[in-house]
Design a protein around this nucleic acid. Structure first.
Lengths: 219, 219
DNA sequence: GCAATAAATGAAACAAGGTTCACTGTTCGG
DNA sequence: CCGAACAGTGAACCTTGTTTCATTTATTGC
């Protein structure tokens, strides 16, 4: 034997992998998945195009990785809010509000995650993303049903509807060329929250409570 | 002079154009826009590939034409229902119910129009399609507000939400491989209708009224 | 039938991207 | 330092889909 993968090398490999993913993510953030082409990714990562294929078997795999990492962050933020101990209506409002606020503040990312035309592999992942949103909404709605503050026939279906309604209300404003919400999307966000609360049969008023620090869009 | 485009020729040209569009539409109906490739379209139309470019400057233009024709049919059906003289809640229910029913019955078409991954040109047309749905819902919701049977802060926004919610609830079941709704999607449809009525603050019950003959999926 | 013009053809060229691979450079243990 | 094994390279290649264009066929008025 004359070669063994040492720790130093393993580390460099891991670093390269990360560098590739980061480069791809940056490009997605700047210009959506359309910009995440292998050659530009490689260039930004400071590697040769062929090298990318030593780390990812195909472009789809790399893009999926990026999508998953980015969407996981979003989902964990929403999940944390949904898991708090608070009345269901409060939580539903905060989840929806956070979703919408983050989408507007991180418009380019939101466009890539929610609306950009993408090819099959990513479209499928996007459905999974939406389904996870629906899961989060489902839990909160079910809690609300038990509390007696909501009233819907089918919690899962209502959740799916909300998971479609919120992005739908945002998509126009999110389009890369749109500046509809540059100043304040507050009116839109309030209206979306109100719609969702009413849709699940909540009778009270929304709190209008904004985001905590840790829910801000950081980068 | 020795040549002049006679009526007979003009007619044949128009017929060819139609033949091309029909071929493309058939392919879309069978396998979505992914199947609407120039070579197969030409073959089915009984023409050469190059000939297609004498009728359409590019594939996008042809696909847009197909999308527009097909979606126009759907929208006119919904529009007709929305324009009837009936209480707003009844009309809203019927529009939503018709939308959902037609989507489920004409699953492949619905998938192509609503959910299939497509490229930019068609994605943009799809947004227009959705916006038109929202327009239809907006009118009905505004009527309902005037009648006093609905209560929402912003009719347009509520309409946009509903225009997103309904397809969202259908998309899983619409996926080409899904057979979730093969027997009856009645439960799902009822739940969607109920969700929408509640979302716009309607207090009464839905009628459960099915489709008239002319709203059935014919082909 | 003929000249003039248009329409149709389909093979070839082109474009754009993803993927491969023969080659070069690096790292390792002895 | 040597040879073995691995990592990195990037130009060539392949695939897929679109477009062009020289050539063939069809139609028209005279």
């Amino acid at each position: 034997m004359a070669y063994r993968r040492t720790e130093a090398v393993a580390q460099r490999l891991a670093e390269n992998r990360r560098r590739i993913i980061n480069a791809a993510r940056e490009l997605v953030l700047e210009g959506g998945f359309a910009s995440a082409q292998m050659a530009p990714v490689a260039e930004r990562a400071g590697l040769a195009t062929g090298t990318l294929y030593r780390y990812f078997s195909a472009k789809d795999e790399l893009c999926l990785q990026v999508f998953r990492e980015v969407s996981a962050r979003e989902m964990s933020i929403l999940n944390a809010i949904a898991s708090k101990t608070a009345p269901a209506p409060t939580r539903l409002e905060q989840v929806v509000r956070t979703f919408a606020t983050r989408a507007i503040r991180g418009r380019r990312l939101a466009y890539a995650l929610l609306a950009e035309p993408v090819d099959n592999a990513i479209a499928e992942e996007r459905w999974r993303f939406r389904r996870t949103h629906a899961d989060i909404f489902t839990r909160v709605i079910q809690d609300g049903l038990e509390e007696g503050s909501f009233e819907v026939a089918d919690a899962r279906l209502a959740a799916t509807c909300i998971a479609g309604a919120v992005p739908s209300a945002l998509i126009g404003p999110l389009a890369p060329e749109s500046h509809e919400l540059d100043g304040n999307g507050d009116h839109v966000i309030d209206a979306i929250v109100q719609f969702c609360l009413q849709a699940v049969g909540y009778q009270g008023k929304m709190t209008g409570q904004g985001l905590a620090k840790d829910q801000r869009v950081t980068a």
